[in-house]
Design a protein around this nucleic acid. Structure first.
Lengths: 331, 331
DNA sequence: GTGAAAGCGCTAACAT
DNA sequence: ATGTTAGCGCTTTCAC
């Protein structure tokens, strides 16, 4: 039932090579012939079989993306970027969700390897030993994780944290809580590290948690932060921050009047962040696009060209224009 | 560099056919031989090339999913379900985002067709004429859209709406606003239809909009609803509802004290819905799983077996336990 | 139970 | 500029 290259060749009265060339090497076939062949193909509804092509060229025209959890709003945005850039570069994309499971992640890479030209690993959960096993099976690009000198797209977490702390400091805050996300999370370690570096003279950081990186993790975290007497909270991510704000509202603490809340991540790109929440945007969609660019350049360029690592700036987005400094004498 | 079936055959001292059979028809090869072959394959790190296999069997072991917009939180949840079920059934999945563009959607189906055994179309934006063009190119399963007698997974929108209206009516509401989503949206039409059917004696529905199905659409919608003097609002989706609640808070209207708000969709599954918001859960993840089951059964069963259409129940989730009836004399 | 050989749809030499 | 031929890695007759 599917239309093959043979069908087109027969119908157009030329050889299969000519049809093949009309698609893959247009300059090698006479204009007149090419037009006729292409028209015939179009009329018959012929679409080249990429799998068969890949069998011989060694390049599949596909690339894979693996994310730890699709229901974490961080990743759909990355995916969106991967998608649009991949389509522009005429790549199809395989998607897999490893469900936060590193073993599964390894298996997925191996399963994909033969069908793709490269794989983009988002916030990979793999251990060093596991990574060892897959390096070499296919081209790899990491997003949001740095591993050896592997190609990677990273966020300037430290920069984002610095912006957040500077912002809070300028508002007069002196005692700030950081609500940790999952201990095992590479992102969380990065954010803690960034925060410690950003902490300046006269600023005290109170670390709390770990908490679940979701709305549900917020309310409890808010209680603990309140008990610590901080005047500002930096949450691991926006989801948790939303949960924090919900509890603050319940307890009659006004934001940003009595408490400033900063979220990390960029789910606000989907239009979800509530105004009084200040967020550090991670530019996930952009990260997805850059990851594809990186992978494609790895695939096409023979020798290594340019830096295989890209760092993306984070951006502090202040939604609450009415922020007021807390009363420094309070407690 | 990749290990082929030839390599395994040579190493194991058997023919390629035997290796092939060891994988695809275990009962046709002597236990002893099979174990040895499998062990050798394992040792060499051999993974069958699915593309090559597909070339001859006609089945690729892949399936495709097309969504209109990944940054709409409705879809990642469906994807999550598709993913996990597909993996269980040993299918790999191609993902594409058509960016709300029907023309692009058609092109994507055609591009995928040769590489997949079937495609799952989520909330397809295609016109009837466009659908005509792709039916037959591959097996299709629709999610959240009914088109002719094509296999589909639908949500019981009407049932969800009925639950919402019953809930509000029981609380004493008599005048309810419905905030429309995009006019062109099939979901919106379904929800309106469900609402009209659910509207009972003594309940007045005020239709507003259309509004953007995002947080940003909410604030303006809230103002209009307030001006209409309703006591309850049913928003097209959770995102918009969140925007509504934000504006209500700004204007000092308490939820659910003075105004009840109901959202549609299930982004709350990601843990995002704020407590005072009541939502109608669409079970998107479940829809994804069911869609895969449907597709797989379409592919494996020769004759049509069972109903090619599944309807999923919607579920009203009341988060605000403190809801109070509005003052019926008020205005 | 196992091997040899014929392709699946396509591209890449090698002719012409 | 176009046609012929030999495979890519695999499954599947058809022999043995």
């Amino acid at each position: 039932m599917p239309v093959t290259i043979q069908d087109v060749a027969r119908e157009a009265g030329v050889s299969v090579s000519t049809v093949s060339r009309a698609f893959t090497a247009p300059e090698m076939v006479r204009d007149e012939t090419r037009h006729f062949v292409l028209a015939t193909a179009e009329r018959l509804g012929y679409r080249p079989n990429r799998a068969a092509r890949g069998l011989i060229t060694g390049r599949t025209g596909n690339l894979g993306v693996i994310v730890p959890d699709l229901s974490n709003p961080f990743f759909p945005n990355v995916l969106k970027g991967v998608q649009s850039r991949a389509r522009e570069a005429d790549y199809a994309v395989f998607l897999a969700d490893c469900d936060e499971n590193a073993t599964e992640e390894v298996a997925l890479v191996q399963a994909m390897a033969k069908q793709v030209d490269g794989v983009i690993l988002c916030s990979s959960r793999m251990s060093a030993a596991q990574l060892e096993r897959i390096v070499g099976s296919t081209s790899l690009v990491f997003v949001n994780r740095q591993v050896g000198d592997q190609p990677a797209v990273l966020m300037d977490t430290a920069g984002g944290m610095r912006q957040a702390v500077d912002h809070l400091a300028a508002l007069g805050h002196r005692r700030i809580a950081f609500l940790n996300g999952p201990r095992a999370s590479w992102s969380n370690r990065e954010r803690r590290r960034g925060l410690r570096r950003a902490a300046r003279q006269g600023i005290e950081i109170v670390e709390l948690g770990p908490f679940a990186p979701r709305f549900e993790g917020g309310p409890h975290a808010a209680d603990l932060a309140l008990a610590e007497g901080v005047t500002a909270i930096i949450a691991y991510n926006d989801l948790m921050a939303l949960g924090v704000m919900s509890r603050l509202a319940d307890r009659g603490v006004s934001v940003p009047g009595q408490m400033s809340v900063v979220g990390f991540d960029d789910i606000l790109m989907a239009g979800m962040a509530t105004p009084p929440l200040t967020t550090v945007s991670m530019q996930n969609e952009r990260a997805g696009r850059v990851a594809v660019d990186l992978l494609v350049s790895l695939l096409t360029v023979t020798g290594a060209a340019g830096d295989p690592r890209r760092e993306l700036e984070c951006q502090l987005i202040v939604r609450a224009s009415t922020a007021v400094p807390p009363d420094p004498t309070g407690r």
